[in-house]
Design a protein around this nucleic acid. Structure first.
Ligand SMILES: [Mn+2]
Ligand SMILES: [Mn+2]
Ligand SMILES: [Zn+2]
Ligand SMILES: [Zn+2]
Lengths: 142, 142
DNA sequence: TCAACAGTTTAGAATAATTATAATATATAA
DNA sequence: TTATATATTATAATTATTCTAAACTGTTGA
């Protein structure tokens, strides 16, 4: 699902009915240049700012989960108290700014491939991801 | 805070009154050979199994947070819906078994030091941690 | 075209983890 | 021992998320 797409067709192909709520949410999420990292609350705020019509919070949850299940969004756990979603669904690394609570994607060339030497019997590795926590120099512990 | 310690003295040194609830919780958490990864619910269950007296859930939360604030426990976010705590407070890597939802510590020698080539202006790196998600070969997607 | 049906949206209730409250109890300093 | 600051507790409140059930809408095929 890329920028400036016909989300009506895209949703249909995916097996999701292109309701106007879903099309709007797709436009907000995917019509942008850079990866978008957001919480449900961020998205709800953006919807109420950019749209005249309200979309029910339940629909926002439903749609985000539907898009996640179809592979267009990825869920990221950083804080225990809220869930982040990511329009970059590939396995990738993040910087997490502890001051602003913002996630920043890390390009492949910015972190050397992580070499995992251990393996757990009977289990296969699904992903290897790095989280780099950053903050201003004045230490404010979390 | 190590195995077989005098937790009464240890708590006092830390500036925490050694109440019998806190001493009991410390015994459960720290009198063990290996790192302990747990949720509040895990700990509450263990307390009710191993003890005759009940400890209020609020006290369990209070104590775990007090120990975290004093640097004896570390909080780990893997799932958005529950918080893990870790008796290993060092910066270290984890395997996460998606089948059993168990965390496993990764020794330093099991993952090569991660080389972060990017830096964010005005921010210093607090930690670099790797999460390796593993599951059985029969793919059950999360 | 349009009725019928399945899938969707919605407000509000329910749930679950966590935190706050405020009364009671306890540890410790004087 | 007494006074005081802290801690424990039951319970209420909060917050993120999910559920429910009724109303609504996209799609299909007569
Ligand atoms: Mn939480
Ligand atoms: Mn949650
Ligand atoms: Zn990302
Ligand atoms: Zn650990």
């Amino acid at each position: 699902m890329l920028k400036n797409m016909n989300f009506i067709e895209k949703l249909r192909e995916t097996g999701l009915r292109p309701t106007k709520q879903r099309v709007k949410i797709c436009e907000i999420l995917f019509n942008r240049d850079k990866t978008f990292h957001f919480t449900i609350n961020d998205l709800a705020k953006k919807i109420s700012e950019e749209l005249n019509e309200k979309i029910s919070l339940a629909t926002i949850y439903n749609t985000v989960h539907a898009l996640k299940n179809k592979g267009y969004l990825k869920e990221i756990s950083i804080n225990s108290d809220k869930s982040y979603f990511d329009t970059n669904t590939s396995v990738h690394h993040h910087f997490y700014d502890e001051d602003t609570q913002q996630l920043i994607d890390c390009d492949e060339n910015e972190i050397e491939t992580v070499n995992v030497k251990k393996n757990i019997t009977g289990k296969k590795i699904n992903s290897v991801e790095v989280l780099v926590r950053v903050a201003s120099n004045n230490h404010n512990q979390n």
